[in-house]
Every structure is written in structure tokens, then in C-alpha cells.
Simulated scan of single mutants.
Amino acid sequence: MEIMDMGVSVPGRYWHRLDDGRVQCDVCPRECKLHEGQRGLCFVRARENDQIVLTTYGRSSGFCLDPIEKKPLNHFLPGTPVLSFGTAGCNLTCKFCQNWDISKARADDRLQQQASPEDIAQAALQSGARSVAFTYNDPVIFLEYAVDVAAACRDVGVKTVAVTAGYIGAVARPEFFAGMDATNIDLKGFTEGFYHKLCTGSLDAVLDTLLYVRHETDTWLEITTLLIPGQNDSSQEVGALSEWVAERLGPDLPLHFTAFHPDWKMRDISATPPATLMRARDIACQAGLRYVYTGNIWDQAGQSTYCHDCGACMIGRDGYTITSWALDAHGHCAACGEPCAGLYEAVPGRWGARRAPLFIAAA
């Protein structure tokens, strides 16, 4: 936490005063306790005029149309474009961060575009995006902005997606996820040691969020685990993670294993071999999970969706591109009629693997 000048800000929603004169932010499990002029570890939530404020409301590091599969979400409106954006900062300190230039940035370093919630909702509608994703950095830390954008999107029939590490406090969870139609939560590892050493966070807090979203909300949930050689990729850890997901969240929950590449403060570790992801997928399937995927590698079999009843390929994929579709209008397997968990339209989108930067002119 440090003292510095702050720009335009809006009041935060979750905080309280302590007896010692400090103010505690309650958005995430860090519970940063601040004196006047200090910012929390996330860098964007601060104490100003004796209250917690969000200093990045209405400002973004940029907007882009992405394939929904890139989030990754394989069971939520497949093939459709999603308007993606983030802000700056993060409430974890992952040494392997793949978006460190945004998540580790100081607010004013990266926030070049301004847009109101209504601006973003209209831009999504006009661009043909079926959803808006809060991504690139964790939307938990810009909760007030994300929640307001979600409400504006819902007003015009656009869905919303949170790509998050799930490191959010119990008091803030209900409002945050009530606004989200889907979420992909990073389950970064399956030991407290991993979270403590590489993220300065807590596994239990993330597991609590996963249980909350799965059992107490209507938000569609998928999970991603980035496998890092020698850190969280052992067969034992992958097996324990997969068994927990199957038993506590259910066999229909999609799980993505993705490949690490050297970045940020872990450039001395090699990229994840494809064989490691394929082995992890096999372990998870053996644990009873029905929809397990590999990512950041070329693996058509590991990126396609199969019917757990008859084994037919229901959605064929080559990277982010849909190559075949065998679901009926109700999202059931065309071969045997078994339901495929998720949210589908009668026909898939045709967006493919394109990435299209978008400029939103503030009204």
C-alpha cells in the first residue's frame, strides 16, 4: 500500500471503518486496511475523503471483439463474438501472469479509453457481440464499473461474462455474480502452498467462490487451470483438483487445462509440453468429468465437445474455430438426444478466431 495522488474516482460499495481510524476494503479477502491517501494492493481501490473509492471507473485499457472460446468458454453461445475489455491492476501477485502488462500496470499507465456503461452496451449491440467480457485484468477489483456495465448490457439484451480468479469477499460475491451470465474462474493450483508462494493468495477463498457460483447462482461456470511445469502439473495434484471439481461442482462443469509460456517473473521455466495437458485431460476424464479441454496448444480432439452418453462429437473445434456442429435446437446431442450442459442457440456463431480492436467513442 502506498500514498500517491489519485484521479477521478467513484465511491466503493464494500468497506467499513475500523476502531483504529483505518478503513477496510471488503471487496476481496485481502481486506486492505487503509489510511487516508493509501491504495490497496490492487492499486485501483483507495481511501479518499474517508471512504473507499474506485479510481478506474469508466476507463479501459482498450476494447476488442474476441471469440467467446478465447475466454475460454466452450459451452456458452459457441462461435459468437464477445466485446472484451479490462482496466488496470489486480488483487493477486501471480509471478506467472500472462497479462502482466495490464494487471501489473499502474492505473494511468494503460487506461487510454473512456466509456460509460451505456456506451459499452450500445457498442456491443451495434458490433453484433452477443456478450461483453470483463477480462485482461480481474473485474473483481473494478466491481462497481463491472456491475454497472452488466446492468446496462442486460437492458439491451446483451449478456455479460466475468473472467476472474475468483478472489472475492463473501459480502461482495452476491452483487458481482448476480450481474454475470457466465464466468470462467481461474483455479490456479490445488494447494495452499502454490497460492501462497506464487500468488500471495488463498486457495480456500477461491474454492468458496466456486461453490457459491455453482450452487447459489444461475451464472454459467467454467474453470481454467494453467499448468506450470514443476509447480502444479503433477498427476497427484491434477487428480485431486479434478476429483474435487467432479464431487463438489458436478460432472457437467467444463474444465480447461491450458499451457503456460515463460512470462513476467517466471521466464526461467519452460513452456508446458502438450503431453502434460493431454495427460491432465485423461486424468480429469477418469475422475468423472464429462467436458475437459486443452488450451494454448493445437489439439483438435482436446478442444472439441463430445457426448458423454454416446461419444459423438457434438462441437468440433480447431483452436477458436468451430468446424462441426451436431447439437439440435435444444442443445441436445443430435445423435442420441442427450443434453449438453451449457447455453446454446439453434445454430452456432460464425465469428471464428478473429480478433478485432474496437474504439468506443464516449457519448
Results as ranks from 00 to 15, higher is better:
Lys70Thr: 04
Glu36Leu: 11
Ala88Arg: 00
Gln236Ser: 10
Leu203Gln: 04
Ala121Thr: 02
Val238Gly: 02
Met266Asp: 06
Phe194Thr: 04
Leu92Tyr: 13
Cys333Arg: 00
Ala301Phe: 13
Ile297Lys: 11
Val156His: 05
Lys159Asn: 11
Asp233Met: 06
Asp148Phe: 08
Val10Asp: 13
Ile283His: 06
Val53Trp: 01
Met1Asp: 15
Val147Met: 00
Gly337Leu: 06
Ser61Val: 11
Ala353Tyr: 03
Thr87Cys: 02
Ile68His: 05
Pro254Val: 12
Met180Glu: 07
Asp50Arg: 02
Trp351Cys: 04
Pro11Phe: 11
Thr323Ala: 10
Arg106Glu: 14
Ala129Arg: 05
Arg214Tyr: 02
Cys90Leu: 08
Ala287Glu: 09
Thr305Gln: 13
Arg22Gly: 10
His256Ile: 02
Val171Met: 12
Val238Leu: 11
Glu48Ala: 01
Asp119Pro: 03
Ala115Ser: 08
Pro254Asp: 12
Ser324Asn: 11
Asn91Leu: 03
Pro11Ser: 13
Gly331Val: 03
Arg173Asp: 05
Tyr195Lys: 01
Asp186Ile: 10
Ala363Tyr: 05
Ala133Glu: 03
Asp19Tyr: 10
Pro274Phe: 12
Glu338Asp: 03
Asp101Val: 11
Glu237Arg: 10
Pro348Arg: 00
Cys333Gly: 05
Leu111Ser: 03
Cys153Trp: 07
Gly239Tyr: 07
Asp233Pro: 06
Gly166Val: 07
Cys94Trp: 09
